[in-house]
Design a protein around this nucleic acid. Structure first.
Lengths: 129, 129
DNA sequence: ACCTCATGTAATGAGTTCATTACATATTAG
DNA sequence: CTAATATGTAATGAACTCATTACATGAGGT
């Protein structure tokens, strides 16, 4: 099961048009090099490398270095996990209905399967004024 | 059609466990107040308000102020749009296959239907060294 | 060995996010 | 009117993102 932090990382990685474009390239040219990707963008090679790192840390890209060249591959697993989780959680929304939906909070499922802490129903603090 | 920037905003808004938890609450308690949401989290009311603003700017929440109370509602449209776009774009991935997929870059479709600029195949700059 | 190529690391700086406290506005109840 | 309630704004600061240039490493070709 995917931890909330991992989910944060995946959404964060996808929250950039540039990074989504990079993911498209890697998906369409499996095994392509860092330089090949960098050659398509109007930013420095280092900036591209950092974007690719973000994608790789989110698990959306897997890389494999042979000789002096790093080969990049897309990994569909995190996207599938998000899709699965969200289709179950927002199933009524996907189909466009919006009826009475059973509440299955991400936190509750994380509690059952993941051992992760919940943010919901936390101890309130109160304002000073 | 959804612009790349809007898509960035939606993913960015979802890239936070706290904000996803807030969206869950609003979905399950349609018309709830800002204070009702704030009462469930261990951060200041102002921090909660800003999170809700992020969600609202991404179009994931719609609000409606009656008297001194702002009522919050979830808007499923951006999630549906992302789902539709991604299931067509990554359709082979959703089903778990991963065969030869026709390349339909987000940028290309944005060009056709949206008038938005593409980042892909941009003019390269080259490093100084 | 020497040079080039492909990638990676370090230091830096502008801009954004995310949290805080203090104060302001506006609506309802008495 | 006065007071409590609900939300909103302003100013601030720590931490992170995103881009840069300069330099370092390590593999391959001649």
């Amino acid at each position: 099961m995917m931890s909330p932090d991992t989910m944060d990382a995946v959404f964060q990685a996808l929250a950039s048009t540039t990074r989504r474009a990079m993911l498209d390239i890697v998906r369409n040219e499996p095994g392509c090099s860092v330089g090949a990707v960098a050659g398509r963008f109007d930013v420095s090679r280092i900036a591209v490398m950092r974007h690719l790192s973000v994608l790789e840390e989110a698990g959306l890209i897997i890389s494999d270095k042979r000789g002096r060249t790093r080969h990049l591959y897309m990994n569909a697993v995190p996207i599938q996990m998000i899709h699965d989780r969200w289709t179950s959680e927002y199933s009524a929304l996907w189909s466009g209905r919006m009826l009475d939906i059973k509440y299955l909070a991400e936190q509750r499922r994380a509690q059952e399967g993941d051992g992760a802490e919940t943010d919901d129903i936390a101890h309130k603090k109160g304002e000073p004024g």
